[in-house]
Design a protein around this nucleic acid. Sequence first.
DNA 1: CCCGTCGTTATTTTT
DNA 2: TAACGACGGG
Length: 813
Amino acid sequence: MPENFTTDSITTNEPDIFDIMAGASPQTQSYLDVLNEEQLEAVTHSGSPLLILAGAGSGKTRVITTKIAYLIAEKNIDPYQILAVTFTKKAANEMHERAIALDARAQYSQIRTFHSFGAWFLRLNAQAAGIDPNFTVYDDDDCVTLIQKAMPKLTKQQVSHFAHEISLAKDYCYLPDSPKLDEIDSDPEFREVYEAYTKRLRETGNVDFGDLIMLPYLVLHNDEYVRMRLFNRFRVIMVDEYQDSNVAQFLLLQELCGAKYGMAASPENPDGIYVCVVGDDDESIYKFRGAEIQNILTFKDKFPGTKIIRLEKNYRSTEQILSIADDVVRNNEGRLGKTLSAERGQGKQPVLAFLPNQDEEANFCADLIKLAHEHGCPYSDWAILYRTNAQSLTFESTFLHRKIPYQVVGSLKFYEREEIKDILAYLSLLANPRDEIAFRRIVNKPTRGIGATTQEKLIAAARENIVTAADYNLLEACKKSAASLSKKAKEGIEKFTEAFDEFKDKLGIGAARSVAEEVVEPVETSAAAMKAIAGTAESPTATAVAPEKEKLPGEISVKLSELIELISEKSGIKNYHETQDEVSGTQRVANLQELANSAVLYECSREGLLEFLDHIELDRTLENPDEETDDNRVTLITLHNTKGLEFNRVIMTGMELGIFPRQDKTGSDLEEERRLCYVGITRAKNELYMTNCSVRRMYGRTEFMAVSPFLLEIDSEKLKTIGHAPASFRRSSFRGGDYGERGLSHPDTESDPIKKKYSKGTKVFHDDYGYGIISFSEENEEGEYCITVSFENSGKKKFIPKYQSHSLMVIKD
DNA sequence: CCCGTCGTTATTTTT
DNA sequence: TAACGACGGG
């Protein structure tokens, strides 16, 4: 372990600008005064579409929230007419809170995630969208189950493959009959599955995540009445993290601001609907989930007259950190281009450590963290970043062993736990007796002697003679069919329906009446909902009556948490998990209690239930309650999950070709990996470390790893290197140039020449092992070309040349 | 219905 | 390597 590290934070003497601003009193200082020139321009701009290109750490949330406050306070915009959408609940909440802090009237603005906006919209326009107003949102697992049931002959693999493609199709707003579906998969079976799935999903009255965007778009696109009402409802529309929007979201945005109908603000129509998007094309990292970077790159073409404002002053990272971030990202071609300037001074030189393997990598991190800790640096200053979740394992075991407290972000999600999903299924079926997925999940859980055959029988019975939506009622079908079942099944199903009657009573919707009847009522609402939507320039008091209003504390007579506790108890789920196994059982019961706790603010009524289900279905971020609340921990996190976060000290691990980036990445995919690297680097406020392993155990094999090309893009003068740098890196230090010169893989030129050149008897030189001769060549099971080399001084080593192209070369006679 | 064993398969995942 | 799912015996 090198001793010449200084681990003192440089922040102690350099409070950042937000600390200063946080202390500013709004009475004595206008919130506009703290903005820099560009921020101010962005806040006060009006009269045309606006694209704010906000670099990492440039204060974009501040700009949006200030703009909301400014519009309300200075421009007389009714807060009710402002819609701001983000991608995560966390971001939405933060934005809402910060806007309210600037101007209390912002509480009446719609500040939501895209999906929760979609859900809100669909509840008001359920009929137009062809769904049940009491729909619940199916998550990806539920969709897979539904496809499997709709198309039983498909294998599990096919099902998840098609599920993925369907969700992708919805990200593009492609319906099952769209010719463009071929762009995703031209297999006719795909259309068939998509169609069957859609039909089945509509029968349940529910929606999936994709529908929350696609259906509102379709409604607005097809229904002029709804559209015109909406144009009166929102006069200002803002989108945060715009680089992560997908095509469907773009289409929805276009409809919301009436771009196609000349309703959007433009130089010709300055009083039209004002649209402002904020994002950073360099931070677009979700292409694999449908995000379309072209949305931001071509925004100005799609919205004529767009004003572009760049926020390039970075208040987060030190200059040295930003400088290497720029070294990396400037290699991308598809970008609008920005140069960040550091507002916090030089800072410490970033460190690049070359380590032999991942165990040493973890130890290196542990050494760093411990050393810093001895100097008074809290564990929570640190974040370990990695490309894949699997990489967390070594860190976890090392940290466990070395007693370093850590938290893994984003691995096991609270709402994906079995016991939680069980209770949610009870709630869902209660809300919507057509919810087949929920029904299947719980009808025999805990076991009531209702096997697969009985389940099919019951569902078939429920699906018979369906005339209106209300006829499809799984619980009613259970009651009616009970008599025709075997004794054991009959008893089971009676227990099941009796429990549900009790739950309905608790919910105050009465056992005698079917939920569906009540549920259908609000369909009328088209008109009522329209009225609510149409409400425009009313006072804030009037807006409080809007259907999306928050429940007020004290208004709740019976808490929804009581229902959850009742269900846990009476359904037998609690007992089931208690007795499953003692160790994790206790935890699971605690999780159930946690779920109940999270429902205390909801009323025990049908409305409260729906609100609650909406809330959790759209917000899966609830913290894992199991770990004690000691928050002084190192954060272990994937690069993707770091977006929007910042840490005083960041270690980017696994900086190797094949891990980061994966080696099959080329072209625009490689550019996305590079952006991911940029995101990682720019998370660091004060100190940045990067680690590289020369050997890594993967998939049961030990592979020699090449240096990540991203490391080679950084001017090596800017990094302090530690450990034995492999030749591939040393060479790059004085050669520079493109990949070709550095001998790094370029997919078109790589594999073939190597196959030809490397045959038995060939003399080679390896950067780490010296001179040798190829003693054996073969193909391994994967069909990869392998060679065994006898080195003069280092014995025999086995290589796969295609992974060694940078460090292994042929010696010409 | 539960448990063991064998075989398969390995990105990233806002909602 | 390891973790998870499928399958078969008790």
